[in-house]
Structure formats: C-alpha cells, structure tokens
Design a binder for these strands. Structure first.
Lengths: 151, 151
DNA sequence: AAAAATATGTCAGCTTTGTTGACATATTTT
DNA sequence: AAAATATGTCAACAAAGCTGACATATTTTT
C-alpha cells in the first residue's frame, strides 16, 4: 500500500466546492443571454488579450477547433467578438471584443471578483500572496518559448 | 460605472487554470476504466461518507436524481458501490464503497493529493492555513440544521 | 384504516460542450 | 511548384447535465 492515511481529502473537497460555487455566479448571468460556460471562457480570454489568434485561444483553452468553432461563431454572430484578418499573416484571424463583449466579460467577472474579495477578507497581504502562490503551484508548468507540447 | 479597474482577473484566471489541471490527473486514470468525472465524484463522496443516502449524495453534488441514476447504476453494476436498504427507514438506499471502490477512490485522490503537496511546498504552516481559509471563503455558506434550500 | 408525504427508480427526450476524422481554402514558407 | 500552416466546416458521436412524467415501496399524518 502506498500512502493511505495521508491523502489530503479536506483540501481536495474544499477545492471542489470552492470552484463549483465560484463558477455558479456567472452561470446565473449567462442563463439570461442563452450562453454557456464555453462562451464565458472565450469572451473572458479575448478580453484579456485582445488581438489573440484562434490558435492562441485553442492553446489556452486546450480544446479542439471544432469545439471552439461553435461557440466562437455564436459570439461573432451575436456581436460580442470581432474577427480581423492578421495584418502580417493574413491566414490568421485576430480576435477582439466589441463594446458589448467587453461589457459582458466585465459583468461576468464582477461577481467572481467580489467572491474573491470576500474570501480574502481577514487575510493579510502575506496570506494573500500565499494563496496566489498556491494557485500557481497547482497548475501544470507553463510552456516557455523553446518547448513544444507533447501528446 | 461600477468597479471597472479593480476586477481581480489574475486570481480569476489562476483559479481556472489551477482547477483545470487539478482535475486532469484523475481524468487520465478514469479514461482507462471507461468512467468519467461524474463517476469520480460519486466514488469520492461515498468513500468519504460511507452509508450516505441517495438524497445526501444529490444534495452534495447538486445534480438531479436522473443525472445521478446513470452513473450510480454503472458503479453499482461494475462492483464499485453497494446499496443497502436503510435499517431504520427502509425506503432509503445507503451507499457503501466496495473494496474495489475504496481502491479506485484512493487511486484517484493520490495524484491530486500529490499536486496539493507540491503547491504547499515552501509555504509555512500559517500560509497553508490561509489557503484553507481562502478555499472555505470561496464557498457558498453551508446549510445548517434549521435552514432549508430555496430556489 | 385511509390518505398524504417521502425516498427512490425509471422512461423518454433535450441541451451543452467536448471528442474524431475528413476535407476545403487561403496564405506563407520552403 | 510544393509543402506547411491557419482556419473553417461537415458529420457523427459521447459525457453529463436538464425537465417532465409516472411507478413503487415505505413512512407519516390525519
């Protein structure tokens, strides 16, 4: 047997519940517009990095282009995102939020930001840095220039 | 305008990436057994609280009984979970993991626990408590005895 | 004892969001 | 001219959620 007793079930569960509730805020807003979580992610990242290409977005979200195509098309058709042919490489489609897209992204982020602020209440600046480091440490190492993704 | 400038995009994204990668570890294991995330959650919670009823589980997962029925049936049929008629209230079906169920739950929790340990590396006991408090603060207030859920 | 409420199960159909595989088009690189 | 790249699109499929309706066994209330 390996490490029976020392599995950190508490944090595993707490992380699960925290994320579930974290995602429930924007879900409620999205319901009204007829969009889903997939749309949320697209609007969010395009807002965060205007001018990103489709390939960039695929890499960030780690989904297939066919999955993305559906929601992206809906967002473009609904006037939340604009596609512009790349000025250098004309094969690319650079993605930009419209005004409505920026407003939607903001509206979705607001309750999440409020939730974070609430969770930070009573935590010192040091404590908050610890949380940030923890969240970074939970992530897979990010690709840097030279490296390539492997299956 | 409300709070344009001070939306905490950094933590929002970090939380998203952290959870995505956190969930990817067990996903890889589940693929082999032909199970999905839904099965994971069920096995996990039944393991954590053996003897819980179907209603308990529904309440924990916040899904409908029809959604649960599918995965639960598969887990029972595959011999990971056992259903026992409640000794006091015979309408209830109390849920217990089998040996295989316990082993599966453990195997799924292990890489997650390792990931948490890695993220905790270099954090003091105080820092770790801060993380725990943060995760608790991110959750919706839990129902206590007297209260009832409202739509 | 009869009626109502509760816990669970099940059928059927629908939605969202992911997947593969195949192929088309425009553009850039070799 | 040929190959590689960025994107789009068609089709089929799967996981996991949903609603609505109804059935059964058991317990609680009247």
């Amino acid at each position: 047997m390996t490490g029976e007793g020392r599995i950190d079930f508490e944090v595993i569960e707490s992380f699960f519940f925290a994320y579930r509730d974290f995602i429930s805020d924007p879900d409620a807003i999205l319901e009204k517009s007829g969009f889903g979580r997939a749309h949320h992610r697209v609007v969010h990242f395009v807002n965060r990095e205007p001018g990103m290409t489709v390939a960039d977005l695929l890499d960030t979200l780690k989904i297939t282009k066919q999955s993305l195509a559906r929601v992206l098309k809906q967002l473009v058709d609904s006037g939340y995102i604009r596609q512009v042919t790349g000025p250098e490489d004309r094969r690319q489609r650079k993605l930009y939020p419209t005004r409505a897209g920026r407003e939607l992204a903001l509206a979705l982020a607001e309750p999440q930001s409020r939730r974070i602020a609430r969770a930070f209440e009573g935590l010192s600046a040091n404590d908050r840095r610890a949380v940030t480091r923890f969240l970074a440490g939970m992530q897979n190492p990010r690709m840097t220039d030279g490296e390539t993704e492997k299956a």
